[in-house]
């Protein structure tokens, strides 16, 4: 750099600019990268070591001349108690279509009919004496077929035993009437 150029740069803030007309650079060399991939066939056998006293399973995988690192898989260890048989028998489950039916007349023949009090539904009430009051009404009952009547005081129901051989069908109702007074007994009055 000469003096003129020095002063021109520092005092005049001028710098010399040159034109390059001959721009003749060599293109870069391009080469194909060569690489080699080694392919190993992994052996199909893989060993899994399970111990009943550890909670992990070791998996080893081997390839030709290489051993991959061991993989540890956390797992619960179970003792194998039973092996599934190769031949499993199939059984058919029979769905029932028949059920035994028995004659049970003996059970119900002696069972009485149990009638509830229906007094509240009686629109026409019987004439009563001064010392009488209505307690209940039971019906319809075929009076002519009755063998026995028992009043279930606790449940307020009337137990009726019929004669199964009876040919009577005419039904009535029966009032239970209480007579007020010492020693008086309730009365059954058919209507």
């Amino acid at each position: 750099m000469g003096i003129r150029s020095y002063f021109a740069r520092h005092i005049k803030k001028h710098i010399d600019v040159y034109r390059i007309d001959d721009f003749n650079l060599e293109p870069p060399d391009i080469h194909t990268l060569e690489h080699e991939v080694n392919v190993f066939r992994i052996e199909p056998s893989m060993t899994v070591n399970v111990t009943s006293w550890t909670s992990s399973i070791k998996m080893k995988c081997r390839a030709e001349s290489r051993i991959f690192s061991e993989y540890r898989v956390n797992a619960k260890s179970y003792l194998v108690k039973r092996y599934v048989k190769q031949n499993v028998k199939a059984y058919s489950h029979e769905v029932k279509s028949k059920i035994k039916v028995h004659d049970a007349m003996k059970l119900i023949r002696d069972m009485p009919l149990e009638l509830s009090d229906m007094l509240k539904y009686q629109s026409v009430k019987p004439k009563l004496l001064n010392n009488e009051m209505l307690l209940a009404w039971y019906g319809p009952i075929v009076e002519g077929a009755v063998i026995k009547l028992v009043w279930n005081k606790q449940r307020g129901t009337l137990l009726v035993w019929y004669n199964p051989q009876s040919r009577q069908y005419k039904a009535k109702g029966v009032y239970l009437i209480r007579r007020l007074g010492f020693g008086e007994k309730p009365e059954w009055r058919w209507v």
Binding site: I99, L107, R109, Y162, Y169
Partner: peptide
């Protein structure tokens, strides 16, 4: 129609 049983049958328990 009096409620007198004429026939009564029962099944075994299923």
């Amino acid at each position: 129609t009096r409620g007198i049983p004429k026939e009564f049958v029962r099944t075994d328990p299923l």
